[in-house]
Amino acid sequence: MKFRIYRYNPDTDAKPYVQEYELTDIEPGMMLLAALLQIKDTQDESLSFRRSCGEGVCGSDGMNINGINGLACITPLSDLKEPVDVRPLPGLPVIRDLIVDMDQFYQNYRDIKPYLIVNDPMPEVELPQTPEQRERLDGLYECILCACCSTQCPSFWWNPDKYLGPAALLQASRFIEDSRDQATEERLAHLEGPFKLFRCHTIMNCVQVCPKGLNPTKAINDIKKMMVKRSL
């Protein structure tokens, strides 16, 4: 199987280039991460990428695969057209090869105050929450911060420092929707203005690429509706 992989090391390369690799030993059910590890182990130690859990829960190995962002560890080779084009996530600065600088992405995450805010004194046991209230967090809390969604979003590409992007907004929704959280008003007020939230133009790339099957566009629209209600 043939691979065309984006290479760039600022130490030695004047500019990025594409390097071709070929693997002959493809096992049934093999994922792209296994192929990358095999290339690194047997052909080219210098090929650089992040990886950790290998099963789609840690969010380390987001990359652009044949033009679409995804996690290498849960992308089966059998689904991919040859040669497989592997590039770093678009829209963030490349550190080396498939590794991008995620600072802006994390900064946007921190911007929405991604933690439960409760102003009342805490009980000595758990805060109560009904199964129905808890269900409202399904589809929101499962985000693994892999950045596949935000870096496939044209609005984020244009204004990564002003538009928060689908991942951060999904987290904003996760706390707005949490029946235990007492900062809804501040959270909504914080998202006011033309950029942070409203730069979402419902392009829905985020929904298409989310490896966890989440729907950031819906979360963003739910926040937008609350904003409208709030302004009335």
């Binding site: 439960l116 805490m122 758990e126 109560p128 808890r134 809390y141």
Partner: peptide, 20 residues
């Protein structure tokens, strides 16, 4: 330790009576 985590925001699954 569990109650603390819940206060930190962990979205534990819930029983009908609202408990973890």
């Amino acid at each position: 330790a569990v109650y603390e985590l819940e206060h930190f925001g962990v979205p534990f699954s819930r029983l009908d009576n609202g408990r973890i």
